[in-house]
Design a protein around this nucleic acid. Structure first.
Length: 733
DNA sequence: TGGTGAAAAGTTTTT
DNA sequence: CTTTTCACCA
């Protein structure tokens, strides 16, 4: 039994073909090159003692600014201090899980400013607005005293630091420099769904006829994904399709044509999908010398967070800005935590940093402030199974080892859920509910957990699920707003017009064509020939005209909602429940002064309102167990972490079993999950799991790969099968 | 245009 | 097995 649990001989591993081998070889060389440029607190010390002959203080401590109110050397560990005070050239910082990455970026920003960098020359790029705001906020409070006391610094406006997501930064550039770039600043943003709709429309426009095709033509979702992946990973559509979708290879010319049309369509109508926002800036940086120069002159100190998750256009953006030698660049990331390749992230970026910047330095943050040594041992053991990467080993300065991760096999997913619920109830006396998290490979895997928690009155919040702005009624209202803001937004027009009964694809197209050719006047809505005399469409005209005259964003929204509500009543029987969301929308609108602002923020920083709360709804931050996917847990930590569904086929996911790189990403995903835990880590696996996708009954290979003595196997697990009924209440209650 | 039924697809999702 | 998407027809 134990023998089979910790042996990998029962698993089949994907073969490494020639291409991958070559690629890995190349990556290894690049890694080795940069490893040679590793700088450590010690190496810096020695070097400076030889050349300058400092006496007692370490060289690092001497770099600390004399006048500063901030105690850099006191508050950072030596490696962090080295990273914070290395402000010239190009640097890659490998920041292991829980190594104080955000803190380091904060202190480096502060150090830059105290060293004389102007706030508006600093550019900080992240993937979430939350991270961007946190760093900026922490810099502000860190420098508050210095700003007040130090004459050289007084009067500096720290708000001038550009700190944001890739998308918000590029969006800002496109609007601010629209004149220089020759584009319309009043563009609207297509989210993924909008972009699918656009492609669908273009298919029809182009006369793509799906019937009578020998080989099925890809659906709109697939098309969108193909085009997006092709752009984000810089793989020609042809190659992408031949490799990953060989079945549709005969349609390659048509798909290429569609991609071209889609691009033209967006440019003509001032529409930008998420990929455009970045790629178009890259395009302008490449082709518009004046723009490039301006940007390079503006941003002299660039920092990038989560570099392992950047895609190719994002890398290009960084490279264009940082090309001049006098622009400093620090990218921070952890190659062990690249888990977004499926979204177009290119994990090679971080491994090839030494290739892009041969002079670059490497700094490693390996001291972990999160987990106990016992958990770190496990996490390090997992790390060793990851094939490619920079050498690293996390260590803790904690004296007590703590408890080893516990692995428990239960008969099925329901028993897993019971086990987890039992453990939480047992541990509750020493913990708040906030201290617990349950992480799963897919959101679906938490269903049983939620049921168990409900039965036992364990409060929980679920992270993820349907997003607020993806709900139908919210998208409808936003489409109305988009029409007002950018009447060229044909996608929004279509969405609204086809809501009317009797209006379909054909009529909608006629109307939008008429509107576009009449210079975006709403008049065609009144044309009886086009509208077949539908009263509702006339009302739409009136409501749009009325909304245009409203003063505030909230008033505009209210006008549109009043118009839409009767339609919603016809469309959805839970309209009452749904209309609650409009209050949220109005409240959001109140925080924005203009439509630009409102639409932009909603698209690029969607409210995380998808959270389902169980427990006390009055409290702002309820004390509740977090239930989350592993992906959404990245960057977070909890004292007690449960990871469930650890059978091969679920974790790793069965669809990733056959490709080396995909399996590798799954392995990193498990690494991310386990490295969230501070003091207790519980791993659970069902004896078997079966679904349409197959029958899975082996424990995850990621567990089997690791030395047996790093985990504790909960032995009375499998005996306690689901036999005794826990009460005599009927199950259907 | 909109209803019907057959046929695919079916993870993860910071924007 | 369940949900979404598409083609067909009245």
């Amino acid at each position: 039994m134990t023998d089979s649990l910790f042996s990998t001989r029962y698993y089949s591993y994907p073969k490494l073909d020639e291409d991958i081998r070559d690629k890995m070889q190349h990556l290894r060389q690049s890694i080795a090159k940069l490893e040679a440029n590793l700088i450590t607190p010690d190496s810096v010390d020695k070097a400076s003692k030889q050349t300058e002959g400092h006496k007692d203080n370490s060289a690092l401590e001497n770099t600390v600014l004399a006048e500063s109110e901030v105690d850099y050397a006191g508050e950072l560990n030596p490696s962090q201090l080295l990273a914070a005070t290395t402000i010239e050239g190009k640097v890659l910082v490998i920041a292991g899980a829980g190594s104080g990455k955000t803190k380091t970026l904060t202190y480096r920003t502060s150090y830059l400013i105290e060293s004389g960098a102007s706030p508006n020359s600093i550019l900080l790029l992240t993937f979430t607005r939350k991270a961007a705001n946190e760093i900026k906020g922490r810099v502000k409070s860190l420098l508050a005293e210095s700003l007040a006391d130090n004459r050289a610094l007084s009067g500096l406006d720290l708000n001038a630091i550009t700190s944001g997501t890739f998308h918000s930064f590029c969006n800002m550039l496109l609007r601010r420099y629209s004149g220089l770039l020759g584009i319309n600043p009043k563009f609207t943003i297509l989210d993924t769904g909008d972009s699918e709709d656009a492609l669908d429309m273009i298919c029809k426009d182009q006369g793509v006829v799906r019937k009578n095709m020998k080989q099925a033509f890809p659906r709109k979702k697939t098309l969108q994904k193909l085009i997006s992946t092709s752009r984000n990973r810089h793989i020609l559509l042809r190659d992408l399709i031949e490799n990953d979708y060989p079945d549709i290879a005969i349609h390659i010319p048509v798909i290429e044509q569609l991609a071209m049309e889609y691009h033209r369509y967006k440019r003509a109508n001032h529409l930008y999908d998420f990929d455009d926002i970045i790629s178009q800036v890259v395009y302008h940086l490449k082709n518009n010398l004046q723009f490039r120069k301006l940007i390079q002159d503006t941003y002299r100190h660039v920092m990038v967070d989560e570099y392992q998750d950047t895609n190719i256009p994002q890398k290009q953006l960084i490279d264009y800005i940082c090309k001049p030698d006098n622009v400093s660049l620090m990218v921070v990331g952890d190659d062990n935590q690249s888990i977004y390749a499926f979204r177009g992230a290119n994990y090679e970026n971080i491994l090839l940093f030494g290739d892009s910047y041969p002079e670059a330095k490497l700094i490693k943050l390996e001291q972990n402030y999160r987990s106990t040594p016992a958990i770190l041992d496990y996490v390090n053991a997992l790390s060793e199974q990851i094939t490619l990467g920079y050498q690293k080993k996390l260590y803790s300065s904690l004296a007590v080892d703590g408890s080893k991760p516990v692995l428990s096999r239960r008969s099925n997913d329901k028993e897993e859920a019971k086990y987890i619920a039992d453990k939480i109830i047992n541990l509750k006396p020493e913990h708040d509910y906030n201290d617990f998290a349950v992480l799963s490979r897919t959101s679906f895997q938490s269903n049983e957990i939620q049921l168990q928690f409900m039965q036992r009155n364990i409060p929980f919040i679920v992270v993820g699920g349907i997003k607020f702005i993806e709900k139908r009624h919210i998208k409808d209202i936003l489409a109305l707003v988009k029409i007002l803001y950018n009447p060229n937004d044909t996608i929004a027009w279509h969405r609204i017009l086809t809501l009317f009964s009797g209006v379909g694809e054909v009529t909608a197209t006629k109307i939008t064509n008429a509107i576009t050719s009449r210079n975006n006047s709403f008049e065609p809505l009144l044309d009886p020939k086009l509208t077949k005399n539908k009263e509702h469409i006339k009302e739409l005209y009136q409501v749009l005209t009325k909304a245009e005259q409203q003063e505030t964003v909230a008033d505009i929204l209210q006008t549109l909602i009043d118009f839409y509500l009767p339609m919603l009543k016809m469309l959805e029987d839970n309209w009452r429940e749904r209309s609650e969301d409009f209050r949220v929308l109005i409240n959001l609108a109140r925080e924005h002064s203009s439509l630009d602002n409102f639409l932009e923020n909603l698209a690029l920083d969607p409210p995380n309102d998808s959270v389902a709360v169980m427990g006390d709804p009055e409290k702002k931050e309820p004390d509740a167990v977090t239930i989350s996917t592993i992906h959404s847990a990245k960057g977070l930590e909890w004292p007690v972490v449960f990871v469930n569904s650890l059978v091969d086929g679920l974790t790793p996911h069965h669809r990733s079993l056959h490709e080396f790189e995909e399996l590798e990403e799954e392995r990193k995903l498990f690494y991310v999950a386990c490295s969230r835990a501070k003091t207790h880590l519980y791993l659970t696996a069902p004896d078997y799991y079966s679904s349409f996708a197959g029958y899975f009954d082996k424990v995850s290979r990621f567990i089997a790969e690791v030395p047996e003595d790093t985990v504790l196997v909960d032995s009375h697990a499998s005996k306690a099968r689901a036999e005794k009924p826990e009460s005599n209440e009927p199950e259907w209650w």
